[in-house]
Design a protein around this nucleic acid. Structure first.
Lengths: 162, 162
DNA sequence: CTCCCTTTCATGCATACGCATCGATCTTGT
DNA sequence: ACAAGATCGATGCGTATGCATGAAAGGGAG
């Protein structure tokens, strides 16, 4: 048994926490999907616009966008293609890397993202804010932030341990 | 402003908590998907088998299965059809409702679910248990349980408030 | 510089998904 | 009992997704 193993909480506690987190996310996502706030967009497409809206200049590389998404690289590539045809983003070259594709929010794309975002936040406030008080929200956020941050530190289970 | 509005925490706190929860879920799901533990199944298919494994007799109605899934009813209907062709579940009639379809885990289906589940739990322990200690896991679970339970109590934003 | 391997994005193809709709059954009101 | 409406699941059809692969550019060793 290694030191790392010794530090791990029981599998039961970890599995139950993950399942609860997952189920809560599914339950909320189902309700958000039903919301009549998405216009012509999919919730996944909105998520891409939202991610872009938080990037400097409303611009990010395709690769970066993919890292925050559950979509595969080909799927994201085609989704961006559709968003470009819809006039919500533009694709351009990347400074200093001719392979890269810079995805940039158009003014219309930013407007649409803000419009949907405003309505979506109301729904979040009702469903999430209606379930937990301010202190609980802060605790939840701290824990999920920590959980996500830790993923960058935990290596893949590749044969590196041999 | 109604009493319900007065009770709500700020939209900012709710939105930040939801975003953090969502991003943590995405980050973890991405890593789980990479895991070489799923055999011939999709993670979504495993989730259906897992849900069934927690039902009395390994059986549930199609409708019930759908309530715990992000899939639409037609998609779930066809997924169950595929799982049946793979010999992992069986479809049968429902007691007292000729419309219903009872989905039942076959012995092989239960075996496959347990096999995958065992490997998956190891990964959960590593990635989730490696990020939070036992007390934090318990707190996270309590909050997400509460969050999910509350969704059943909060009505749709239909015109019922007029 | 050149070769080789990696990284980044696009494309062909098969498949799973969502939307709209249908058929069948249950439920409710009269 | 009957008609009208709701609920449950299946199916047609167009589209989005994933896997495998390709094309183009970066990076490093000789």
């Amino acid at each position: 048994m290694t030191d790392a193993d010794r530090e791990l909480p029981g599998a039961r506690e970890a599995a139950e926490a993950w399942e609860s987190l997952f189920r809560a996310q599914v339950a909320l996502m189902r309700r958000f999907q039903r919301d009549d706030v998405w216009g012509d967009l999919t919730i996944r497409e909105y998520d891409v616009l939202f991610t872009l809206s938080g990037c400097p200049g409303g611009t990010a590389r395709l690769k970066e966008l993919g890292e925050g998404s559950l979509l595969t690289q080909p799927s994201l590539s085609r989704m961006v293609e559709r968003l470009e045809q819809a006039g919500l983003v533009e694709r351009g070259p990347v400074q200093g890397d001719a392979r890269g594709v810079a995805v940039c929010l158009t003014p219309e794309g930013r407007r649409v993202q803000r419009e949907i975002g405003r309505r979506h936040v109301r729904s979040i406030r009702r469903l999430v804010g209606g379930a937990l008080d301010t202190e609980e929200l802060a605790t939840l956020r701290a824990l999920t932030d920590k959980l996500r941050a830790a993923q960058a530190q935990i290596p893949d289970p590749s044969g590196s341990d041999a």
